[in-house]
């Protein structure tokens, strides 16, 4: 694979009640965006174990998004989003220490109505990932 036709792959963990619905809405309202995202539905951003994100990177994801309801109080489960905020704030610090570019991970708050925000987040992240290239160094040389 050459870097010219490098297509980054983004794994998304989306809260059933807000972000997953926003991604549905983007489709329903035919807001087009690049097909590089793979969405995994969870009931709450608070369900997302940092191990899942690590597993995604390990298996070749170039970027990961965890998307939930806007803090402090939009969470369908009271404060699952706050648990996600706590975990992934520390997680970002870990990635920084391990030398993984911060652009590769995003914690985003996308309400059910924010299809536009979803499209913007995907486009922004893809642009950044294209600039960075693949996470696996090996893939560059192949």
């Amino acid at each position: 694979m050459s870097t010219n036709n490098y297509e980054p792959r983004i794994v998304v963990f989306a809260c059933n009640w807000c972000s997953y619905a926003a991604i549905d809405l983007a489709g329903t309202s035919r807001k087009l965006y690049p097909p590089n995202v793979r969405v995994i539905r969870v009931m709450c951003s608070g369900r997302v174990d940092p191990q899942f994100v690590l597993e995604a990177f390990k298996n070749g994801a170039d970027g990961v998004i965890v998307a939930g309801c806007r803090p402090p109080s939009d969470c369908h489960y009271i404060n699952g989003n706050i648990k996600a905020l706590r975990r992934f704030t520390l997680f970002k610090r870990l990635l920084e220490e391990l030398g993984i570019e911060k652009e590769r991970f995003r914690l985003e708050w996308i309400s059910a109505a924010e299809a536009d925000k979803w499209v913007r987040v995907v486009n922004e992240m893809l642009e950044e990932l294209r600039r960075l290239g693949p996470l696996k160094a090996e893939a560059v040389s192949v």
Partner: peptide, 28 residues
């Protein structure tokens, strides 16, 4: 457990009793 550090991070961060990003960042 698939990744010891990932799990350790998850439980430690979960119990950090702040709701606001700035306060969480400050403690971290």
């Amino acid at each position: 457990i698939h990744d010891y550090g990932g799990k350790a991070l998850s439980f430690l961060a979960s119990i950090l009793d702040y709701e606001n990003e700035e306060e969480i960042k400050r403690e971290i």
